[in-house]
Simulated scan of single mutants.
Amino acid sequence: MYLKRILLIIVFIGLLIGGLFSAMVYRTLFISNTVFSNEQAYVFIPSDADFDEVKQRLQPLLKNPSTFETAAQRKRYTENIRGGKYAISRGMNNNDIINALRSGNIPVRISFNNQETPALLAGRIGSQLEADSLALYGAFSDTDFLKAQGWTPDQALLPYIPNSYEFYWNTSATAFRDRMLAEYTKFWTDARLDKARSQGLSQEQVIALASIVHKETAQADERPRVAAVYLNRLKKGMFLQADPTVIYAIKKETGNFDTLIKRVLYRDLEIDSPFNTYKYPGIPPGPIAMPDISAIDAVLNPENHKYLYFVADTENFGYHKFAETLGQHNRNKEQYVRWLDAQKIRR
């Protein structure tokens, strides 16, 4: 009888301990542990983060950081931390949070356009991905990478077609560059390659010429007309004489790409740079900026006309006046120069 009582007490104690343990496990793993009111919150975990940094980044989102730590240890998350961007939903319990941090790395949508140098592009991308701008610049400018594509440092911007792309936030600098090279290859469809050949241009020349078109006009519907002017000049053996190339040459020589130049002066045309299309014939050795797709397609699908000249239209800002003869162009230009003088735009 006495032994039976002892056994019942032991069983009772065991059940009590088991119940307490189960309650503790349930509380640790399965009770909501979020404190924010939005539907979702996002946390960015660096690739080299340890668990202390994970806790620090999650702490503002959690009701009870200590139960999260206990759960993470039980599920061995502390030994398998992965960098990335993760979504934590309102009402998640620790078990759900840890599962999300293990396998829920979500992509970010990044965009870029009209950067004039690899350094500026690196800064733009570095503000959107984990990779810092120095690592990105090193990847973009890597001479071995460029040589493998048959490109020079002046052509380092070639593979970066402005658009929106999805990347994992913790994508490395070289992985970003290599993905953009793949996107560039994909962009050059057989149809686009055929059109480039019909113009007598290589892919690199198309991008370089498109960058000039892009800088000349922001109006997508005018770009095929501007592109045709330059193609007409090339066919006649004329110099391109594009003001944006002179501006780029000045910026490149000074190293100051923040310079704002609204008016190109005659003395500027003397700058000795292969990018100065007043001084050197043909298409420049590389793009003067990153042309968007509408500018590239404008070079590949130019308007059919005989215009050789154009100048800004002061009666329809954003657009240009076009001319087939130098005489007509000079008359259009006089009107534009008078407007510049009236606005006191000297530089």
Results as ranks from 00 to 15, higher is better:
S198Q: 15
K279V: 07
K279S: 11
L8S: 01
D132H: 02
Y137L: 10
L300D: 12
A295M: 03
P287H: 08
I345H: 03
N114R: 15
T152W: 03
I17H: 01
L58M: 14
N93Y: 09
D96E: 15
T28G: 04
I88P: 10
R177E: 06
L15G: 08
S32T: 13
F145Y: 14
A156S: 15
K4H: 02
N276S: 10
A208L: 10
N256E: 03
S294E: 14
A220E: 08
P107S: 14
N38Y: 03
T277I: 05
G104R: 07
S141I: 09
I293S: 06
P285H: 06
Q59E: 15
R90N: 15
T70I: 15
L134T: 11
K215M: 08
N113P: 00
K279E: 05
A191G: 00
S127H: 08
Y278G: 02
Y319M: 08
A72H: 11
S164M: 04
Y26R: 02
D142Y: 01
A342R: 04
V43W: 09
V311Q: 07
M238Q: 12
F68C: 02
Y42D: 00
Y168S: 02
M238V: 09
F310V: 00
H320F: 09
L340P: 06
V246E: 02
F275H: 07
L146G: 01
I207W: 05
A210H: 06
A295Q: 04
T277N: 04
L209R: 09
Y160H: 05
G91K: 11
Y230W: 00
A196C: 10
L240I: 09
A156M: 13
L231W: 08
Y42I: 04
A242L: 11
N105M: 10
P60D: 13
F36D: 00
S294A: 15
M92Y: 14
K195P: 02
M290N: 06
L201S: 03
R331Q: 13
Q115R: 12
K251T: 01
K333V: 14
N80C: 03
Y165F: 02
P46F: 09
D297T: 13
S37W: 08
G19W: 09
L29W: 06
H329C: 03
Y280C: 04
K333M: 15
S111F: 13
I161K: 04
L62H: 08
R223T: 07
A220V: 11
K262Q: 13
I261N: 05
N33I: 12
N95H: 14
W151Y: 14
